[in-house]
């Protein structure tokens, strides 16, 4: 196999990964624009956009591997960070949506002695000496949390 064929194969691999990543990016953003409800809109970018960024980052790794001859680790850092934070972000957004769209009695039971923690009264004027929770009937023992 000659070197021209190898260079052509490497370029084709990088170009195909860039195209696949861009396709997934635009699918995720289009789903964010066009899907009807917020839960469906939540699923489109959190899956497709991370796939798209993953494809583009792998393309970048392969490109710098082919041009410079060594593997750069920055892309792996970005990939790891995005893949770690995408589920956390989706979870927080879904929880905020539940909190804003439904009243407290409509939400499913938690199956624990305490209810949904986000409906607890806000510690508006906490005493720095006695912790963040205000004193009074809201204070619950620590073993039930």
């Amino acid at each position: 196999m000659t070197s021209e064929v190898l260079i052509f194969l490497g370029e084709a691999l990088v170009a195909a990964l860039i195209l696949a990543g861009s396709f997934f990016m635009i699918v995720g953003s289009f789903g964010l624009l066009r899907l009807p409800t917020l839960m469906q809109r939540l699923h489109a970018p959190t899956k497709a956009t991370t796939l798209g960024v993953g494809g583009i980052l792998i393309a970048s790794m392969l490109f710098f591997l082919f041009t410079n001859g060594w593997v750069s680790v920055h892309e792996l850092l970005i990939t790891l960070f995005l893949f770690l934070t995408a589920p956390v972000t989706a979870y927080m957004l879904a929880k905020a949506h539940l909190h804003r769209a439904k009243a407290e009695p409509e939400l499913p039971p938690t199956g624990r002695p305490v209810g949904w923690a986000t409906f607890d009264p806000v510690a508006s004027d906490p005493d720095p000496d006695s912790g963040l929770r205000p004193a009074g009937e809201d204070q619950r023992p620590l073993d039930t949390i």
Binding site: L32, L38, V53, I56, L57, S60, E75, L93
Partner: peptide, 22 residues
């Protein structure tokens, strides 16, 4: 809703990361 706008901002950030990589 405000949650939609937060989600749009998050997707915007991911798009910006992809643009910078390109």
């Amino acid at each position: 809703d405000a949650v939609d706008r937060a989600l749009a901002l998050d997707t915007l950030v991911v798009n910006a990361v992809a643009l910078i990589m390109l």
